[in-house]
């Protein structure tokens, strides 16, 4: 599998993603600078990593959607390419319209970094195929703005379409609507989630397989 990790100014989990995909999973991984206009040929999978792209001034992910590289990522996703947005990457995907919903400030206004339990809701996608439906996996979170929100119509669409990937199990750390932690697009080739599956050298390595899509 050939993986590209996008580097925006202010990304700070880019090298962690490269490490997870290359050193832990054994795939080919390269970084892609935000100012490029096209993706490298033959890419199977694009990762939008966590961090604070462009300082997250204005609103998380709101400036990144105007990056020179973004149209190429949108084209890639629309053509069926696999894209995952982690944390700030998830925020960028919702801002750029590749995923529905929005991410708001955590309910208690504080940044939260800790291991949480995540429940797999849809296990029949490339990202989640190695889990069982309902399985609980341990993944760290680290964010200040991860409260997932969507309107009622959008929520119904997500549910009807089986687009909810993960929910927080037990404690809902940030006040997300229906404890939603990650969602797919309609075609299930784009995933966004707040937890960090690449943070694989901590208590649990469960989450690494989310990045092992092919």
């Amino acid at each position: 599998m050939k993986v590209g990790v996008v580097v925006f100014p202010g990304s700070n989990c880019d090298m962690d993603c490269v490490h997870a995909v290359r050193d832990e999973l054994g795939h080919e991984a390269q970084t892609i600078w935000h100012d490029e206009t096209s993706l490298p040929a033959g890419l199977d999978f694009v990762i939008l990593p966590g961090g604070f792209s462009y300082g997250d001034y204005l609103r998380c992910g709101a400036i990144a959607k105007f990056a020179r590289l973004m149209p190429a990522i949108v084209d890639f996703a629309n053509a069926g390419g696999y894209v995952i947005g982690i944390c700030n990457g998830f925020q960028i995907l919702t801002e750029s319209g590749l995923l529905p919903g929005a991410l708001l400030r955590n309910k208690d206004q504080k940044f939260i970094c800790k291991d949480i339990d995540l429940k797999v809701i849809n296990s029949s996608t490339a990202f989640t195929r190695s889990y069982k439906k309902g399985q609980i996996i341990t993944v760290p979170i680290a964010h200040g703005e991860g409260r997932y929100h969507i309107d009622q119509i959008g929520l119904k669409k997500l549910e009807d379409n089986d687009q909810i990937a993960f929910t927080y199990s037990g404690n809902n750390p940030n006040g997300s609507l229906h404890s939603i932690a990650g969602v797919f697009n309609e075609k299930k080739n784009v995933l966004g989630l707040m937890p960090h599956p690449e943070r694989c050298n901590f208590r649990s390595r469960d989450s690494l397989r989310i990045l092992d899509i092919i």
Binding site: C113, E198, C200
Partner: peptide, 8 residues
């Protein structure tokens, strides 16, 4: 409140 894990 601190990201104590980034950089792995």
């Amino acid at each position: 409140q601190y990201d104590h894990m980034v950089q792995l």
